[in-house]
Nucleic acid binder design. Structure first.
Length: 441
RNA sequence: GCCCCGGUAGUCUAGCGGUCUAUGAUCUCGGUCUGUCGAGCCGAGUGCUCGGGUUCGAAUCCCGACCGGGGCGCCA
């Protein structure tokens, strides 16, 4: 273990058949041990793939004995000679002269990494560290990372400032009942369900364009494949707009760009998963709310103008749009009555609002719109919603001292990854998901 | 929170009142084998979620709790 005198461990990508004869040290997880009696193979797994260690009884029976004694999924280090060999994976194998167990794994494993049986999601999540040793599961998160990187790149390139608003707050963001309550030095506090009010307040500062990628918490006891209690929300707010179309263009470019970025830079990961997501063409369709209701009526669903679109309706529209070749689209101009208090009703038809949802494969990815920036109108609407204005003084104050017209969106990162990769459950797209029953790990 | 379905070895499953000393696979352990790469072959090991009840008898039927799967409501 006198590490300082020894060369660093070589990675799989640093070794090739042309290194024949070279002495290298490698480390990794023991994926499998194949004991053929006179010869033993250890399949060693690293981040990028697996390589083979070969032990021959006639060369060194002692080290062969050590190799056979190692438990699967232990972390080992080995030093030996590289031998080019067409029979071995990668075209080479290593014949170790030294083998050390850096961290043994107990047996049996709580979850097999290469076992020929499946495991339920619940079991996998209970043992997530082990589950993520499977390349196809790590690939999901490599892709998620790429998608986020592309989103950030787009936002920075378009003049947005990345911000962080508080996740602990003394008042509920939108006055809903779906807040987690906690004790804050004897006072009641809530986990933020949305950065909504804070990002709007920032519109009164001169930043003009802000975005935030951070957790949001919802205490709704939803038990579905598309809800978790802690999710990552990508929020943005833009000042000095004339119409929501001014930023819808940005959102669609950002989202479509993210899918394209994943396809371009995540080829190896998509290959592991056998996936090839479609890149929607720009601009994506804008379906008016009233037309969406029309589609539902065409499909025989009993809805009337003014109704909210329920899950079934959302799925029907998803299929209808899919038939026309559209996976990603906006639904615009919802009735004012079914949207939050901060939405701006349309000038010419106040029954409807400057609001939108972005839908991807029949699931809501984002919602947003132009906000009511006129103090009097905002207060009027808040009263109509039955909100106690005393609790919202901190929010309303900026509206009395010069608030530019503005709007923005909230976009669910976890759902985006779920739909882009056609995952059956949002929990697959989250490392350590939180839901109604799961708080550990 | 509501509706439907389910909970069997570390993992995934069959069984659905006695014939269950519970099926198969995977896994683990032991044996064998000098080119495996889903290694092979021989042998062994581990289990009916918990608590009540019905019955001569319960993995199996009933009730409750907890947990899981699907759907709904709501939403990102």
């Amino acid at each position: 273990m006198s590490g300082a005198q020894q060369p660093p461990y070589a990675r799989l990508k640093d070794i090739s058949p042309s290194d024949d004869g070279r002495i290298v040290s490698v480390a990794g997880w023991v994926e499998d041990i194949r004991n053929l009696g006179g010869v033993v193979f250890i399949i060693l797994r690293q981040r990028e793939g697996t390589l083979q260690l070969t032990f021959k009884k006639k060369d060194d029976p002692d080290i062969l004995g050590q190799a056979v004694a190692v438990n699967r999924e232990s972390v080992i280090g080995a030093t030996g000679r590289v031998v080019a060999n067409k029979q071995a994976r990668n075209g080479f194998e290593i014949l170790p002269a030294k083998l050390e167990v850096l961290s043994p794994a107990e047996a049996p494993l709580p979850l097999g990494v290469v076992d020929k049986v499946g495991a339920e999601l619940d079991t996998r999540l209970d043992n997530r560290f082990m589950d993520l040793r499977k390349p196809e599961h790590r690939a999901l998160f490599a892709i998620r990372s790429l998608a986020l990187r592309s989103i950030r790149d787009y936002m920075y390139a378009n003049g947005f400032v990345e911000v962080h608003t508080p996740k602990l707050a003394g008042a509920g963001a939108e006055g809903g009942a779906s807040l987690f309550e906690t004790d804050y030095f004897g006072k009641r506090a809530f986990l933020s369900q949305s950065p909504q009010l804070y990002k709007q307040m920032l519109m009164a500062t001169g930043f003009d364009r802000v975005f935030e990628i951070s957790p949001a918490f919802r205490a709704e006891p939803s038990d579905t494949v598309r809800h978790i209690t802690e999710f990552i929300s990508f929020d943005a707010e833009v000042a000095f707009i004339r119409h929501q179309e001014d930023f819808l263009k940005m959102l669609e470019e950002c989202v479509v760009g993210s899918i394209a970025y994943v396809k371009e830079h995540g080829k190896e990961h998509l290959e592991i998963l056998g996936l090839d997501p479609k890149v929607p063409s720009l601009p994506i369709p804008r379906l008016l709310y009233v037309d969406a209701i029309g589609i539902l009526q065409e499909y025989g669903k009993k809805v009337k103008e003014g109704d909210d679109i329920d899950t079934e309706g959302e799925k029907i529209i998803g299929r209808a749009m899919q038939e026309k070749g559209h996976e990603l689209y906006y639904i615009r101009d919802y009735p004012s009555a079914i949207k939050a208090f901060y939405v701006m009703p349309k000038e010419d038809d106040p029954e409807y609002s400057n609001s939108f949802d972005m839908e991807y494969k029949g699931m809501e990815m984002a919602s947003g719109g132009q906000r009511e920036h006129r103090y009097d109108k905002l207060v009027e609407r808040m009263k109509a919603f039955g909100l106690d204005l005393v609790n919202f003084d901190f929010y309303l104050k900026p509206f009395r001292f010069g608030m530019p017209p503005h709007g923005g969106w909230g976009f669910g990162i976890d759902r985006f990854v779920q739909k882009m990769l056609d995952l059956p459950n949002i929990r697959e797209a989250v490392l350590f998901p939180r839901d109604r029953n799961r708080l550990i790990p």
